[in-house]
């Protein structure tokens, strides 16, 4: 699809804003609608758009496969690790009260960390699934030109 000039220019213009919006949804999920799941999908859609327009191989150069694999596992580790930290601090698994001096900011910190883990895993899994599907068939590569 690299000969479609309009698509290329518009996607290049849009991708930074998609990434920014994903980050906004991720870190503003405490106050407005959104959260890790939605943010992860939006963040992944930016990379998928890049892969659709500029070809899978270029997208793999931007975001190598082993990074995606690390992201898939790291998000879940962050989530479970938050629970383990609260275990070590003498409370129940995933009890965020002890993560900070007072329980309210501890809860806030815990929710923040957990949502970040969710977002990381969801984004990585979406990119990984897309790469897996697109890397399999040669028709998509031909369509991308």
């Amino acid at each position: 699809m690299s000969h479609h000039l309009v698509v290329r220019v518009v996607s290049k213009l849009l991708i930074p804003y998609i990434l920014l919006f994903g980050l906004y949804v991720q870190f503003h999920g405490d106050f407005g609608p959104g959260g890790g799941f939605q943010a992860g999908v939006i963040f992944a859609s930016a990379f998928i758009l890049y892969a659709l327009v500029h070809g899978l191989n270029n997208a793999r150069k931007v975001l190598p496969d082993h990074w995606v694999r690390i992201g898939v596992a790291l998000g879940l580790i962050i989530y479970a690790g938050t629970g383990v930290i609260s275990l070590f601090l003498g409370r129940n698994f995933l009890d965020y009260d002890v993560l900070s001096q007072n329980p309210v900011s501890g809860q806030h910190l815990g929710i923040f960390a957990v949502e970040f883990g969710v977002g990381l895993t969801v984004a990585s899994v979406m990119v990984a699934i897309f790469f897996a599907f697109a890397g399999r068939g040669h028709k998509i590569d031909e369509m991308e030109g």
Binding site: F31, F93, V104, S105, H108, G110, V114, E115, V118, V122
Partner: peptide, 23 residues
């Protein structure tokens, strides 16, 4: 929790185990 979005509070704090299962 000091978090105004109730959906996020329930999802990430009160029902944290469930969300970990989903992840």
């Amino acid at each position: 929790t000091g978090v105004p979005n109730v959906v996020t509070v329930v999802l990430a704090s009160y029902r944290s185990y469930d969300t970990m299962g989903e992840v």
